[in-house]
Amino acid sequence: MADEAMISLRGVAKNFGGGGQEIHAVQEVTLDIQRGEIFGIVGFSGAGKSTLVRCMNLLEVPTKGQVFVDGVELTGLSKKELNGQRKKIGMIFQQFNLFASRTVLENVAFPLKHSGLSKEQIREKAARLLDFVELGEKKDAYPSQLSGGQKQRVAIARALASDPKVLLCDEATSALDPQTTHSILQLLKKLNQELGITIVVITHQMQVVKEICQRVALMEAGRVVEQGWVYDIFAQPQQEITKDFVASADNSNQLSEVLAETSVRESLGQGARVFRFRFLHTSGGKALVSQISREFGIDLNIIHGNLEMIDGRFLGVLILLAQGDKQAVDDALAYARAQGVNVEELRG
């Protein structure tokens, strides 16, 4: 089946510990990740993201449920068969996990032992992969001689060595600075596009999701609480936790704290209300703010603005301070909503 999902989780649960204090790290997750997509999984620390992704190659054996990768049910395999399937599932980690005793080239060649290739072919392939991740000249260095970004590139090359169909990334960029993060994300994008590898990205940074993912799932307390196209999640977050994460990505997350300050409230004036307007790519290009200000006779003050492209589509965010007759403000908001703007009132 061509339209069958690449990764399919069916009612997957994972408990740790036994007796009285069982931890339900993952609870009843059913999720499909499609062939060729880059899928993000986001959540706060302890939400169960790592546990979930580790269930996808059975580094954690689910307590309950089934895991299918590329049509094969991993949860039903013998140890030997599982090791065979795992070669189709690459994985990279926050801490890189390179073998300190091996050179860069030897690290990349590690998964190729017993692959049927000759020593010479293995060297060639490893060298080719290092070229792909733009580290060809470092092949004889040891990991301790590399920067974090270079280490992650080696880890990626190593994960690619067995020609996987899937790449699992657990916080692969969390130990890196923003610029290096960007270059690693571009590399992931490249191997998604050029090699057609399906990628699962675990992160707590919405920036990462925004930059490379097409779809995203949000996890809280072991459950997937919301999932969808990245654009939709940013444009119309439903759950509280999703709103938090989205706000963290456009820097408006500190706004409610700022608004709670009495001095700020006073300077804003009595009866002022604060709104977040999200202009979707469908909202059209009208001068909506000045229009409603004029037509409904209210004062609108822009205190924060952000404009970006997500997955190739435009999304604008404005934080507005509205002053005027309550009814007029309400009417204005209703009008804006009718124009396809996602309006949300922020309370200090």
Binding site: L59, R86, I89, M91
Partner: peptide
């Protein structure tokens, strides 16, 4: 983490003992 990385690459237990 190294042991896990090796497991994720489909390395057998014997392989992990000797190679890791």
């Amino acid at each position: 983490g190294l042991v896990e990385a090796a497991q994720a690459m489909g390395t057998s237990s014997l392989g992990i003992i000797f190679r890791v």
